[in-house]
Design a protein around this nucleic acid. Structure first.
Length: 279
DNA sequence: ATGTCGAAATCGTTTCGA
């Protein structure tokens, strides 16, 4: 099963690029962020015409998430449901459309657009921190606890020095502060694992390059788009790659897609060496 | 050098968010 995440930075602006990419890669599930479109205007038919199911949770101008799937999208949930911390009211939380989740091929997939936070001194940073607390409670809620779990999206957080281009300069700033990293670790606990790091230990693998400052041309990027898997899915993972070439297209999103291939449901052949010898 | 995008409103230029 091939699962992808991609912050497309406006689905209407990026529509043809996304459709071409689906034809090329043929993922079973594509989770997108920053759709920037109200639900009535989401270009669903373009995906349905290709045989995909689509569910979306969006708003105009900002935020917005969607799931595009070859499998039925079951038990779809929008927003951060469940128990909320005392210091953040539900309306503030649900004003920003950042979460959509579904049961896909018996995997609970949670598609996230984590707040950027702007800068450490900003009120938006406080919102980001509180939002991550809400996410912890959401993922700990009983209903999501017993299913194979895939939490993916644009996290707007680099977890380690090797996930940013100039750690000595960027460490401690927005997307790289101790508190953000600690909050995300607390979301993940021992249950969720960054599948990209199962296959690649080196730095210089980025998923986001700022439009500004010639970041792409100078390869000054960050790895802030992540795919986290529970252990039964991690054990069956075959590969995880960043499709960097999409950032080099004309009029690109500032993010590249990230893909994971999982042997799911598990099949013996994948683990049997003789399978490869004879095929 | 907060250097570029995308979207919306204040509309054909400025603002906000990232």
């Amino acid at each position: 099963m091939l699962i992808a995440t991609w912050n497309v930075n406006s689905i209407r602006t990026r529509l043809n690029q996304v459709l071409d990419w689906l034809d090329e890669v043929n993922p079973d599930l594509l989770c997108i962020q920053e759709t920037k479109v109200d639900d009535p205007f989401f270009p669903a038919a373009s995906f349905e015409d290709k045989g995909y199911q689509v569910r979306y949770y969006g708003q105009k101008s900002y935020n917005g998430v969607a799931m595009i799937s070859r499998y039925p999208l079951k038990d779809v949930r929008c927003g951060l449901l469940g128990e909320l911390p005392n210091d953040l009211d539900a309306k503030l939380l649900e004003d920003q459309k950042r979460v959509i989740s579904a049961l896909v091929n018996d995997i609970r997939v949670v598609n996230l657009y984590v707040p950027n936070g702007s800068s450490i001194a900003s009120d938006k940073y406080q919102y980001k921190i509180q939002w991550l607390s809400c996410l912890s409670r959401y993922l700990n809620s009983q209903k999501l606890r017993d299913e194979p779990l895939c939490v993916l999206g644009d996290f707007n957080i680099a977890m380690e020095d090797r996930d940013m281009h100039s750690p000595e300069r960027l460490r401690g700033g927005i997307m790289a502060s101790e508190l953000e990293q600690e909050k995300l670790r607390s979301v993940l606990q021992d249950r969720l694992h960054d599948v990209f790091r199962l296959f690649e230990g080196d730095t210089n693998h980025w998923s986001w390059w700022d439009y500004r400052s010639g970041a792409w041309d100078r390869d000054k990027g960050w790895r802030i788009d992540h795919i986290y898997l529970s252990s039964e899915l991690l054990d069956q993972s075959v590969s995880c790659v960043i499709d960097k070439k999409m950032r080099g297209k004309t009029k690109p999103s500032d993010h590249a897609p990230v893909l994971v291939d999982i042997n799911w449901p598990p099949q013996e052949e994948y683990e049997d060496d003789s399978f490869y010898l004879h095929h």
